Simulated scan of single mutants.
Amino acid sequence: MLQATIKDNPSSFLIGLSNLELKLDCNHLPRRIEESFWIMKYNIDILTLNQEKVEETIITNAPYWDTFERFYRNETGSTPKPWYNYYTPLSFFIDNKHIEFSSFSYRAGIDLLLDKNNVAKNTYTFSVFSEHVSNLHYLQAEYDKLHNNSTPYNLIFVQDGDYLDMYIDSVRSSNYIFTYVRGTKEMAKEIENFVRREPYDPSKILWPRHANGTSDYDDQTILDHKTGNAYLTLHDSTIRTEPDSSSDIVADIKKDDVVTILEKNNSITINDIQSNWLKVKTDTNQTGWVFGGDISLNDATSREEQERYEAEHAELLKVAQQYQEKLEQERKAEEEQKAIEQKAQALRDEEERLRQEAMDKLIDFDVFLYVTGGMLVFIILLIVVILILKSKKKNRKSK
């Protein structure tokens, strides 16, 4: 297992090394999907309610707050302020590699690592292969469905403009989890202020709109597209040479075709739809003008972006493979060096053994010489004594 940390994020994961493989079967997520801060929808609903209904709606959607004050006393031993002083809206952000879900006070969020994804029109399917929870005992209750699934499993998001419906494994009501709306961190902070009964700036709230420009919060149909981004077409239409419905037709476009916004003209209203004439580029490189009422608010990735992403990914894969080959060469070189060192050590050990053996033999020879020399001296002394004794005996006889 390997412990990995996400850049700019203190969360870490335990990952099986077999999962760490660069693949080319990933689709590039639309830029606005990755750049957005997705907030649970009921947090927008409460902004239109009175205080009593705000509390009721929050506790219905997040029963945790109904018992928070008792939980706080049990955990800290002190008396908390009213529950709403601790409120933060649940949210998540996403990219090609992971999804990070936030949590309430004193709870734990969940982070999911993604293996691959599939994009089909307004539906995004991600293969989840690993998860991280800082403390399972305090896991945010809303994420139990995610945690209770054995990885790998599919997490599916269906986009409807500024809305994302989340499902597990398949798009059906029994697998539905939450609906999120597009927002920003500043917007989440204003919602927090609203619930906490602190000064609140409604101008920072981005009221969500469906793919067709309608809203749950007003009676207008407004389609406001961002220059430089790609979108799916809302229905069949035509691209024209000028921002005028009477100008020549350049090409026909079909429902769910991908167009990239190059330029926006002034806002106008046509058939009760407020939008702009948009200069667009199709995936077949045709350029012209189309009324924004014909372009949905569903994000897309242009063919050009996808091809650029694949080229960059392929280059990254090439570099990674080269690096892997270099690591393999270094590993083999290390093994060869280790084998050489082991042989050298074996030779040194053998040399030491032979030296010790020679020393042992030399010591044995020294002992032999010492013993032999001692015996020789003894024999010589014995002979001398015998000769002396014989000499003395002979002298006595001669007398």
Rank of each mutant, 00 (worst) to 15 (best):
Q140M: 12
V119P: 09
A108G: 08
I110V: 11
F129M: 01
F104D: 06
L113N: 02
G109C: 07
F101W: 06
N148F: 12
E131H: 08
D111K: 05
H132F: 07
Y106H: 13
N117R: 06
L146E: 08
L139E: 09
S150R: 05
S134F: 02
K97F: 13
P152N: 08
H98V: 00
K121F: 09
D115A: 04
Y124V: 10
S134V: 03
K121M: 13
S150N: 13
K145G: 12
T125I: 08
S127H: 05
F126A: 06
D95N: 15
N118D: 15
K116A: 05
A120V: 11
Y138D: 10
F104I: 01
P152V: 03
Y138P: 03
P152H: 05
S103H: 09
F129G: 07
L139N: 02
Y124F: 15
A141E: 12
S150P: 00
R107K: 15
S130I: 03
F129P: 00
T151W: 06
Y138K: 11
I94M: 13
I99Q: 00
N149G: 02
S103C: 13
H98P: 00
D95K: 08
D111G: 09
A108T: 12
N117M: 08
Y143C: 09
V119H: 09
A108F: 00
V119Y: 06
H132E: 01
S103K: 06
T123Q: 15
Y138W: 13
D95H: 09
F104K: 01
L113Q: 06
L136N: 09
H98G: 01
N96F: 01
K121G: 05
S103N: 12
N148S: 10
I99C: 02
S134Q: 07
L114A: 09
L112A: 11
K145T: 01
Y138A: 05
G109A: 02
S102I: 13
S150C: 05
H137V: 14
I110E: 02
L136A: 05
V133M: 04
E131Y: 03
N135H: 07
S130V: 03
S150I: 11
N122A: 10
L112Q: 04
S134I: 02
D95G: 01
K121E: 14
S150W: 00
N118R: 14
D144A: 10
V133P: 01
N149I: 04
P152L: 04
N135K: 14
D115P: 00
F126Y: 12
V128K: 01
L113C: 07
I94N: 03
F126I: 06
K121P: 02
T151M: 10
S127E: 11
F104Q: 11
D144R: 12
V119L: 15
